[in-house]
């Protein structure tokens, strides 16, 4: 078992007005090792907040998060995090960005660079290794950010709308790649998305969040084998079912 989220609530107090925003209320979730779980729900319902609490960027107001039985007290290199916005280091070129985590953890640079080149090839960016982030398009930056996290072999990956800036071909390619990695390396993945088709294609379970305060409204379990056929009836039914559930949440 990897993640245990127990009775987590989060209240934000905005600085000047002392106004309280209850972002999350009583979230309980258990996510097993090697599981692929998606968070979906209307904008502002607390998906990002939950993900940030699991990583340790944010402390819950109440409740606890455990990773492999250990209390999460801060970020760790065991939990890779891929941000919603571009988070590349602008002063480093692409390859140095990719090996940032390896460098930090004292891996030999030459080997790291070799591995980085292989990863860059898989996302079609091998010719951009020496470029700087400011010379890349949004989608290219995001691909670099993705492999920068993948290359670290963390036990889990937390991804916040990671694929939303990508064109459909790259998106599908990376979806398959992430799935492969998840299954082969038994990585646990938590994936926040607004793209229900994507959630159904990838996930073992889909967690639907309710509107503010964020609570777990429903959890869908998906038993279909991989690779999933987007055209089949079962797939399409699931997509509509999840969309319907989110629609219901929106009306609450």
């Amino acid at each position: 078992m990897t993640f245990e989220v127990e009775n987590v609530s989060k209240t934000f107090v905005s600085g000047d007005s002392d106004e309280e925003v209850i972002a999350l209320k009583d979230i309980n979730l258990t996510i097993e090792t090697g599981e692929f779980v998606s968070f979906v729900g209307p904008s502002g319902c607390g998906k990002t907040t939950t993900l940030r609490i699991i990583e340790g960027f944010e402390k819950p107001t109440e409740g606890t998060v455990k990773d492999d039985g250990e209390l999460v007290t801060g970020p760790s290199n065991q939990r890779g995090f891929i941000f919603q916005n571009y988070s590349l280091f602008p002063w480093l070129n692409v390859i140095d960005n990719v090996i940032f985590g390896l460098n930090i953890n004292g891996k030999p640079e030459k080997e790291s660079k070799k591995r980085a080149m292989e990863y860059l090839k898989t996302v079609g960016l091998e010719d951009f290794a020496e470029r700087y982030p400011s010379e890349l398009s949004g989608g290219m930056k995001q691909r670099v950010a993705i492999i920068r996290s993948l290359i670290n072999d963390s036990k889990s990956l937390l991804m916040d709308e990671t694929f939303s800036a990508l064109d459909i071909q790259t998106k599908h390619k990376l979806q398959n790649q992430i799935l492969k990695i998840c299954k082969e390396q038994k990585k646990t993945i938590i994936f926040v998305t607004h793209d229900i088709d994507e959630a159904v294609y990838l996930s073992d379970r889909i967690v639907v969040f309710s509107r503010r305060p964020g609570m777990v409204k429903k959890i869908f379990e998906i038993k279909m084998d991989h690779p999933r056929d987007r055209q089949c009836q079962e797939f399409e039914d699931l997509v509509s079912e999840v969309i319907e559930m989110i629609g219901e949440v929106e009306e609450d």
Binding site: G74, N77, F100, I104, N105
Partner: peptide, 17 residues
């Protein structure tokens, strides 16, 4: 940029790093 600080934290950067 706080995002860059968080990114480095998620790679396990120490304070001096």
């Amino acid at each position: 940029d706080p995002v860059l600080i968080e990114a480095a934290e998620s790679f396990g950067a120490s304070n001096s790093q």
